[in-house]
């Protein structure tokens, strides 16, 4: 008899005891393309860390030749019109991209997560009305024009671009988290917490936000890619990176060089960027599939 009970409980822990995370990890391991994409992103991260530590990419602004030169052993991708090594610049651009991606993705997801949780928890009440009004307003202004307007207000602040991205990108996360929290807050454990008098702040931060982490994770990977892609356009519009070099600035240079037949800058910058963004998008998809229990594919 005892054995039977033990057996059945064992069985239960096996089928029901699997957490969202271990299940996701199991699913993710099976997704070969997702894993490959993840390692590609890791390699890029390695490059970015290497540039930060000064292993390579440090001579991105040195003038090594007189004007444009083709591919050679010293300069793998040749040099640009100013005589700067393109490969070094592309490596340094990786660091810039990760810097922008990380700052924007982390801060915007954080902001969107908290505001979304607050709005969802108080849905229909004043905080919710204010927050939904606020993201409705932000969403109504076209992004590139919003950045231009913000650049006017912030004058020459080198972080104007980061601020602009953060203040617009949080809205999508906020919207999704708000919807999710409206679903979560009617679950029994939240009602129980309210019944025994747990404070609202504690419920939101301890019981609600931890249950939306998987959404926040996917959102942050999406925002990371969006930030890197937006940087290119903003740098082309002269609203982007002010210090150092980025793939966007390289592409803006390339736009001047391509008509003259110098493709190296274009190939290097777009190649570096395309592979990273493609890998990150693929990884983000794999993560989304792994974390979504109801995913129809």
């Amino acid at each position: 008899m005892n054995e039977v009970i033990q057996n059945s409980t064992n069985k239960q822990t096996h089928t029901y005891g699997e957490s969202l995370w271990s299940k996701a990890l199991r699913k993710l391991r099976k997704d070969t393309i997702g894993i490959v994409a993840f390692f590609v992103v890791l390699i890029y991260l390695g490059i970015a860390v290497g540039v930060c530590l000064g292993f390579f990419g440090s001579s991105w602004d040195r003038f090594v030749t007189d004007g444009y030169s083709g591919m050679s052993r010293q300069h793998i991708f040749g040099t640009n019109l100013n005589g700067q090594d393109i490969f070094e610049r592309a490596l340094y651009g990786t660091k810039t991209a990760f810097q922008i991606g990380f700052i924007v993705a982390i801060v915007a997801t954080f902001l969107g997560g908290i505001l979304g949780a607050v709005a969802g928890f108080f849905s229909g009440k004043i905080p919710d009305v204010l927050i939904t009004w606020f993201y409705g307003v932000i969403d109504s202004i076209p992004f590139y024009l919003f950045v231009a307007a913000l650049a006017v207000a912030l004058a020459d602040n080198p972080y104007a671009m980061h601020i602009a991205m953060i203040s617009t990108f949080w809205t999508s996360t906020c919207r999704i988290i708000r919807g999710e929290v409206i679903k979560i807050k009617h679950l029994e454990y939240i009602e129980a917490a309210r019944a025994i008098g747990v404070s609202y702040t504690k419920i939101i931060f301890k019981h609600i936000i931890p249950n939306t982490i998987h959404i926040l994770l996917v959102q942050s990977t999406i925002l990371f890619v969006t930030a890197i892609k937006s940087e290119v356009i903003l740098s082309f519009l002269n609203l982007g990176v002010k210090e150092g070099v980025s793939w966007g600035l390289m592409l803006a240079e390339a736009a001047q060089e391509v008509p003259a037949g110098n493709f190296n800058n274009f190939i290097a910058a777009s190649g570096f960027m395309l592979i990273l963004v493609l890998a990150f998008n693929t990884f983000s998809d794999a993560l989304q599939d792994a974390l979504d229990p109801k995913k129809v594919s």
Binding site: I233, A252, A254, A255, V258, F263, S270, V277
Partner: peptide, 24 residues
């Protein structure tokens, strides 16, 4: 579709100009 999503607008514009409009 994922490739289309991953390429920057600027890259596509430059690339299409090279392919269709330039002597290269």
């Amino acid at each position: 579709a994922v490739i289309g999503m991953s390429v920057s607008y600027l890259i596509i514009v430059i690339l299409f100009q090279i392919i269709f409009c330039s002597s290269y």
